[in-house]
Structure formats: C-alpha cells, structure tokens
C-alpha cells in the first residue's frame, strides 16, 4: 500500500469534486451552528433593549424619590449609596468586550483577559499619569531586582515573591514621597492599582522566563495599549451612569461576545504575519 505514492500524473478529476462536496457540507454544518448562535445573541440583545425601554417608560409614571439618581426621569435598581462600589463592577463587562475585540479580531496579545480591564479601572482611580508612573517605576525596580536575584541562583517562587514585595513596597514609597512633597493629594493612591500592578509584574516575569524578554515586552505593551483604550472609554461618566441606570446592557454585551465567539476570520495581525504568502 505504501508503494501507492506515484508522481502526480496530471490532475486527477476527483479532487476538485471532492473538495466542492466537502466545502458544501462544512458550510451547511457551520451555517446551522451560526444560526443557533445568532438566535441566542438576538434574544439577548433585543430582550435587553425591550427590558430597558419597558423600565424607561414605567419610570416615567412611577418615580421613586429615594432611588432617583442623576436623571430626574429614571430610577435605578441600585440604591444611591451603592453606586460608588457598583460602578467599577458594571464597567467590567464593557472592558471585557473591548479586550475580546482586540485579542480575537485585531490580534493583540495581553496578559490574560481581565488584566487590561482591571488596569483600566485602576487607572481611572489613580488618573492616567500617576498610574503609568507607578507601573513603569515598579516594573523597572522589579526587573532590576530580578536580574540580581538570578545571579544568586534563587529558586523561582521565592525569587518571584521577593520581586513582588519590592515592587509593592516601591509603590508605597512613591506615594509617600509624593505626599510629603505636597504635590499630590492622597486620593491618587488606590489599593486596586497596587494589586493590579503587582499581578502584571508577576505575569510579565513568568512570560519573560517562558517566552523571552521580547515576547514579554510585546505582551506588556499590548496590555497597556488595550488598558489605555478602555480607560479612554470608561472615563466618560456618561457611560458608567448609563450602565448603572440600564444594567440590561450587560445582556447586550453578552450577545455581542457570543457573536465574536463565532468569528473565525483572520486576525488583523495575521495579515501581517502571513504577508509573504499574500504576495503571490
């Protein structure tokens, strides 16, 4: 049977027929799957819009004094005293939608899926400039410490813990110095930013070990870029107010994510990666 390999004696007529048959079958299968996904997505999106409109019109007639938020014509399901804490949470799905677009359609790699969102929320609390100062300063200190630790032949997990300790401490020192200079109010200090930045440094260090510094820097730049885009979107108060008033929007986002889940086209960065194949 192995001797069946013969040099191609011209084109055999069956191949194109077989391929056409297969293509038709595959198309049928994926069409069926797509239709199911579209249906669920449509239910989610239109359902959310319907619920939103329904609540909107109801609220025109019944306005509860205690729950009235910024807009006098609408009531929110969240009591006002909760808004401070809930705002960040309702922004997470929106951020995740942006991350998914960047990762699956554009093809930018990031540390995990939620890291850019959390970083953007942290930036929203600290302001962009101070967030970036924290990130870059602690990242530099961390990598400096790491390069020295590797010379001492310290095992991986203790080394990583030392790096993270130093990074978190250096952020505290920056806050203290800025405070004593009197240039910055302490409002800029947010525990979330320290948590997120520590997490990012850990991911960076691991990726650097696994795939090299170049890959780690590329992913860090991707994470930062996506986080800044999300920050640019969520810093508009209108958006967080809208999400607080209409939490149904989360259903719309879920629907869009479902649609993205069936996107099997090429990512934008793949057009670049396969550019030589394109130039035929």
């Amino acid at each position: 049977m192995t001797s069946g390999i013969t040099a191609s004696s011209g084109r055999h007529p069956t191949a194109p027929v077989l391929i056409r048959f297969a293509m038709a079958k595959i198309k049928k299968d994926t069409d069926l799957m797509d239709r199911r996904v579209y249906r669920i997505a449509a239910i989610l999106i239109f359902g959310a819009v319907a619920i939103g409109f329904f609540r909107h019109f109801i609220s025109l007639f019944i306005i509860s004094e205690s729950y009235a938020v910024t807009s006098p014509w609408l009531s929110s399901i969240f009591p006002p005293e909760m808004h401070g804490q809930v705002t960040s949470v309702v922004l997470i799905p929106l951020g995740l939608l942006v991350v998914t677009m960047f990762r699956n359609v554009v093809g930018i790699s990031t540390f995990g899926t939620s890291t850019p969102v959390l970083l953007a929320i942290a930036l929203r609390e600290t302001s962009l400039i101070f967030g970036l100062i924290f990130l870059i300063a602690s990242g530099l200190v961390g990598s400096f410490v790491r390069s020295h630790l590797s010379r001492l032949h310290i095992l991986l997990i203790p080394a990583l813990s030392i790096v993270l300790t130093v990074a978190a401490t250096s952020m505290l020192i920056i806050v203290l110095v800025l405070h004593h200079q009197g240039s910055v109010p302490l409002d800029y200090f947010s525990p979330l930013s320290i948590v997120v930045i520590t997490w990012m440094i850990e991911r960076f260090a691991i990726l650097q070990l696994e795939s090299g510094t170049r890959e780690a820097l590329k992913t860090a730049a991707g994470t930062l870029f996506v986080a800044i885009v999300i920050y640019g979107i969520i810093r508009f108060h209108l958006i967080s107010h809208f999400l607080l008033l209409y939490p149904e929007t989360i259903l719309i986002i879920t629907g869009l994510l479902l649609l993205l889940g069936r996107y099997t086209g090429l990512r934008w960065t793949e057009y670049y990666r396969f550019r030589d194949l394109m130039k035929k």
Partner: peptide, 19 residues
C-alpha cells in the same frame, strides 16, 4: 485581503473554533 482568503489560509480563530 481577498487575495489572502483565496489562498485558503487557516488563522488562529478558525484553528481554535473549527479544528
């Protein structure tokens, strides 16, 4: 872009979703 699709290129998304 059309040119690239006609070469039957498999991207990461399709590899993950369909293969």
């Amino acid at each position: 872009m059309k040119k690239l699709n006609s070469t039957g290129l498999l991207g990461l998304n399709r590899r993950n979703a369909s293969y």
